[in-house]
């Protein structure tokens, strides 16, 4: 009887965990395993039961597919280009707003505006801002005399990618700023006073005090921002759909198109596996950083 009680007592934690883990296994883990299984088959998404075993063919197709190479290039540019700019702009804004300025509270309140609204809605708005005829961006640049004719920003591969990154940076930099502000405010002011007494200049106390103390936050937010951006499909889906051609296609949008536009089952599954590998790599870096933070 006593041992039965003991077993029941040992099971208590698992009862608490059951609902959450059940849903996660059913909706996250189970489909991932299924995805691995599907990636060895070829079938139409409309009739998933009529599938043919093709071995590693989907993976071989990936190596040969020129769009995959474009996706790799674009995913790297999109992810790390956005994250670096967000880091730079977010940090600059935080350093400026960390000083006592009138209107600081107002600005801090407004800062999260671009982040709280749905990314899809922000993307639609930017689509209109960048629009050839309607776009305000063209109006402003023409008034400043920087361009002479209206330009279709999303029509050219290079300006399309730059525009996408700008939209993403616009959306997330203020969030980075808020995180940096919190980190800056946790630095005890005593340290700066001590540095001042020792005769350190503003630049020196920034370079040898602020920057090293912010380093853990910078690493974390950079990796997290990369993961968010790598995963976000809304902005690219709405603004370019991966176009012109496949010039702004990233893995996430390409897998989506292959599945829900070309209605394939196995090939997008294989692309997803590649994405999971890439994301797991980022997640491992994140875990290592978190571990150092805890230490």
């Amino acid at each position: 009887m006593r041992s039965l009680n003991k077993i029941a007592k040992n099971l208590i934690p698992y009862f608490f965990l059951l609902p959450a883990l059940g849903i996660l296994v059913g909706i996250n883990l189970f489909p991932i395993i299924w995805n691995v299984y599907f990636s060895f088959f070829d079938a139409s998404l409309l009739r998933p039961t009529h599938k043919i075993f093709v071995g590693f063919n989907n993976y071989l197709e990936m190596i040969k597919d020129p769009v995959i190479r474009l996706c790799l290039r674009n995913t790297l540019i999109w992810t790390f280009g956005s994250a670096s700019l967000q880091l730079l702009i977010g940090l600059t804004l935080a350093l400026v707003l960390n000083q006592r300025l009138p209107g600081r509270g107002f600005l801090r309140g407004m800062a999260l505006f671009s982040w709280i609204i749905p990314a899809a809605m922000a993307a639609i708005m930017w689509g209109w801002l960048l629009h050839g005829e309607l776009g305000l961006i063209n109006d402003v640049l023409m008034k400043l005399g920087l361009i002479h004719t209206r330009y279709v920003w999303l029509g050219d591969p290079v300006t399309a990618m730059i525009s996408l990154i700008i939209v993403n940076v616009w959306r997330l930099s203020p969030l980075f700023m808020i995180v940096f502000l919190a980190a800056l405010q946790s630095i005890p002011p005593v340290l700066y006073e001590a540095a001042k007494i020792d005769g350190a200049s503003t630049w020196h106390s920034f370079r040898y005090l602020t920057l090293p103390l912010l380093k853990p936050t910078m690493g974390l937010i950079f990796v997290l921002g990369s993961i968010w951006t790598c995963n976000s499909i809304d902005i690219i889906y709405i603004l370019t759909g991966g176009g012109p051609g496949n010039e702004t296609q990233i893995f996430a949008t390409y897998a989506y198109n292959q599945a829900f536009k070309s209605l394939r089952l196995g090939y997008p599954g294989a692309i997803s596996i590649l994405m999971i590998a890439f994301l797991t790599l980022l997640a491992v870096i994140y875990l290592i950083l978190v571990k150092e933070e805890i230490k």
């Binding site: 698992y14 189970f30 489909p31 998404l45 599945a259 599954g269 797991t280």
Partner: peptide
């Protein structure tokens, strides 16, 4: 304290990192 605690934590963090769209196809079928 119970066995599997660390394993569950890692599973959760990775679950947080892996987005919905990589499981979109099997999820749609499910």
């Amino acid at each position: 304290k119970f066995s599997g605690r660390v394993f569950i934590l890692i599973f959760l963090i990775i679950g947080h990192m892996i987005p919905l769209q990589v499981v979109m196809i099997p999820l749609a079928i499910e």
